[in-house]
Design a protein around this nucleic acid. Structure first.
Lengths: 158, 158
DNA sequence: CAATATAGTTAGCCTTTGCTAAGTTATTTT
DNA sequence: AAAATAACTTAGCAAAGGCTAACTATATTG
């Protein structure tokens, strides 16, 4: 059997030296799995909010088109969102956000904007920034988000 | 909570004005879905590589513990990785990476290191940086990765 | 070397998120 | 107002990624 070296030596950035203690390591993965669970929900809610704001209403067909997904998939997802109390609607009518849905949409939109703005401040091209932001936004902690905001502003005023 | 910067004076970053054309929007989501498909695979491969490097071998039980997942789940996942030609092993023996697996592990490790280093350069606390890096690494384009690397170096030498 | 403990596998279940195909409701057009 | 089109829903399927329980193989140890 192999001995587990239970020590964390380097303070900075030598990344080849040791695995984190397995408990911590597991927590990292758990955090990611967790983020994945809410991620899609947030994307839908955010999109629904955006559609309402920009086009006056959120229709399943538009969501399907923008998500690049079939209408059936949207229908099923919307049922889930309704079950979670984030979305409301009557059958065959367009969608609304509940109060909780609005809150979630606002948060998401804000996160999204901060990340996007940060990437652009880094000089990332627009298309890439959009794609990366979409993927990253759900994995960025409050702490990092704050740092991003700070740096965007710094870079802006120089 | 984060301050809402509802005053976006700069020209390039008003995010409340228009949705992207739906085709482009759909592509963004497709990119995220795509990333999700390879994400876990990469995490496993990266971890297996790390275990081999640091402990001499990669055993299912260790993977399960570090991933925070049951051994049965690991077993199933490993079967998938073998099917994809990334991992090799004989039943009841420990795991190896194929050449393709090695390549993937090297790429992943590098991405991971760059993102982690970048977050630390931003002043993010260690635990948070680890968690965020784990989540973000799969959603960062080459372009953004390069920018991160550049900035880490800048910040280091100041 | 037999018994026990540990490690790995398999079977069977569940949920999520996609799909297509078929059915229903609403809207538009003639 | 009937017919046609568009929008939405439902049913049923599949793959991924979790789980527990039961089984099999390997390693340890008394």
């Amino acid at each position: 059997m192999i001995e587990t070296p239970e020590e964390t030596p380097s303070p900075s950035l030598s990344e080849a030296d040791a695995l984190p203690p397995s408990e911590q390591h597991a927590q990292q993965y758990a955090a990611v799995r967790n983020a994945h669970e809410t991620e899609l929900l947030e994307d839908y809610v955010e999109l629904i909010g955006d559609l309402i704001e920009h086009q006056g209403e959120a229709r399943s067909a538009d969501i399907a088109q923008r998500m690049g997904v079939s209408q059936a998939t949207v229908s099923k997802m919307v049922a889930r969102l309704k079950g979670l109390g984030l979305v409301a609607s009557k059958p065959y009518r367009s969608l609304f956000l509940t109060e909780r849905g609005e809150e979630m949409a606002a948060m998401s939109r804000q996160r999204h904007a901060i990340v996007l703005q940060f990437l652009r401040a880094l000089g990332i091209s627009d298309d890439t920034a959009r794609i990366d932001a979409e993927g990253m936004e759900h994995h960025v902690s409050e702490e990092t988000l704050a740092a991003m905001q700070r740096i965007s502003q710094q870079r802006q005023s120089s």
